[in-house]
Each structure stands twice: as C-alpha cells, then as structure tokens.
Design a protein around this nucleic acid. Structure first.
Lengths: 150, 150
DNA sequence: TACAACACGTTATTACATAATATTTCGCTC
DNA sequence: GAGCGAAATATTATGTAATAACGTGTTGTA
C-alpha cells in the first residue's frame, strides 16, 4: 500500500472519529466545522486561522475570520483540535483520549513542525507540580518548544 | 517586618540579580530595559506589551511598541523574563536557574494569575517524551493552563 | 405553528507583533 | 575632546490575530 493511501486512510479515520465524538456528545458537526477539521487533517500540521480563511474561501464566497474562529472554538471544545499558542495556529489532536495521559505538543522552534506524544508519566509529574503551585486541576494539553532531531 | 517591606526586599533582590546576570554575561541592562524589568517585577504578574507601553510612557515621551518588544526580547534572551504565549503577556522568571529543572508556569484559565514552579521530575519526564517524539532538546520553560485552588 | 436555542453572516474594532528606516547614545581611539 | 563604529532607541507603517456587536437564518421540539 502506498504512503498516500495510508495517509488517506488515516484521514478517513480521523474524520470518522470526529463524527463519532460529535454524535456521542450531541454536538453538531456542521458543514463549515467539518470543512475546517478536514482542512486541518489534510494539512498535516498547524495552520493559522487566517490561513484557514483563505483556504476555505473561493471567488464566490469569502468566509469571515469570525466564522473560522467559531468553528475552531467548537472543535477545541470537542477535544478534536488544539490551539498552539506559541505559533498562533491550530492542529488536529491525534490519538485516543486517554484521560490519564498528558497530550504534549512538541513544536520545533524553527520550522513550527509539531509532534504529539501522550505521556502519563508527564501527567503525573505535572499534577504534583500543580499541587505545589496551588492548582487543583490542569489542562490535559501542553506545548513545549524544542529542536527536532535533524 | 511588614508584607510591603518583604515585597520591597524581594523586588530589590530581583533587580540585583538581573544586574548580576547581565554583568556576568556582558549584557547591558540599559535604562529602558531596566524600567521594563522593574515594571514587570512591581506588577507581580503577567503584563501585556501594550500595557507596558502605556505604563512606561508619559505626556512628554511616548514609547513605541517596538521599543518595548526589543527590551522584552533582550530580557527573554537573558532568561529574566518569560513570555506567556497563551496570554500574550510577559512575566518575571523567578528562582535560581537550576539547569536540570523545568520551569513551569501555571496559568489560571480564568484570571490569568500565574504561579511558577521548578521541577526536575517534570523535566526528566518531558525529556523522555521528547526523545520519543524525535526531539533532541526542549525549552526549559513551559506553560500549563489550569484552575487555581479556591 | 410557534418558540427557543444554536449557527452563521456582516461589519467594525481592538490587540499583538514586526518591518523598514532614521536618529541618538555609548565606548573607544587618536 | 573630536571623530568614528556599533549598539540602542525612535518613528512610521503595515501585517496578522482575535473578538465585539448585532442581525438573520436554521434546526429541533413542544
């Protein structure tokens, strides 16, 4: 099987999963929301909000930034998309939602390329640190800048 | 000793330390840079760049945003200030620079209040995760959103 | 059908950040 | 202390990110 076919399959999986998540939580994956999600999936990496505006607009219809932001907010609330604060951009959240694991987005400081890793070990260590800081709960997402190997 | 006096003392310590760090690394803590640093120290929390513009300007002289950004860049490079990407703001970096510890900024999702904690345990766990992600080095800073107790 | 909640469109505004370029200040040498 | 080069700061302009405010349409439901 070709790499392309593999990726296509992976894309379909993500789309299907998004559909399931929404169905199970009584959320409406409207056309615009799905188009935004699909665009993020196909890009394979972080994409800026205004970039999404351009990509989902055409000659006939130009989407307003706020439309994209609303779709992104929805997808984030649904746990399907994660915002990269350091890059002002948005990426698909991969992987099965393991409640006990921390979802770490490693971001290459130079290229902006991202790799997502789940770690319950980090989750536990962060929980301890949070307690020390007087925090009772922490986000299951975090973002760490670094340098990718080669 | 009063709380106020304690805080004053803490402020002086930070200022002194900033001075030392710069001296030891042949960096110039110019008036503007020091004013920016001092303002961050005195605020006791995260401050936005444009907020700093306002606070450090007066009737006679209005500083340009780029002036503040340059000072902030300098202070960040020197390891004295940390940028909170989730808040688009900047905070003092406390504590002695322990190379092996991760500096974690816990940010209250509601108020934006921050607490800094250093943890070598988190550092180690993140290093492992980074390796898994194909990253050869990671920033010693990270930011985690959460909910502060009470 | 009517109504309530949600989604989307439109317009405008605010905030954040940097590019390009000019001017001042600092530290040094003669 | 006059002149020079480098660093720091000022000025202006522009680009990008995000949200506010308000109106209209759509959907699900009693």
């Amino acid at each position: 099987m070709s790499t392309k076919a593999l990726r296509k399959e992976e894309e379909d999986n993500l789309l299907r999963r998004a559909d399931d998540v929404c169905r199970q939580n009584n959320l409406r994956l409207t056309p615009i929301r799905e188009r935004v999600y699909r665009e993020l999936v196909q890009s394979g990496g972080p994409v800026g909000a205004y970039d999404l505006v351009d990509r989902l607009s055409n000659e006939k219809k130009r989407l307003a930034p706020v439309t994209i932001y609303r779709a992104l907010d929805f997808l984030r609330d649904a746990g399907l998309v994660h915002r990269l604060a350091t890059q002002n951009s948005y990426v698909i959240s991969h992987g099965q939602p393991d409640m006990n694991a921390m979802k770490i987005m490693f971001v290459d400081a130079k290229t902006g390329e991202t790799v997502e890793v789940h770690s319950s070990e980090v989750a536990e260590a962060v929980r301890k640190a949070a307690e020390q800081a007087g925090f009772k709960s922490v986000s299951p997402f975090m973002e760490v800048e670094g340098e990718i190997a080669q």
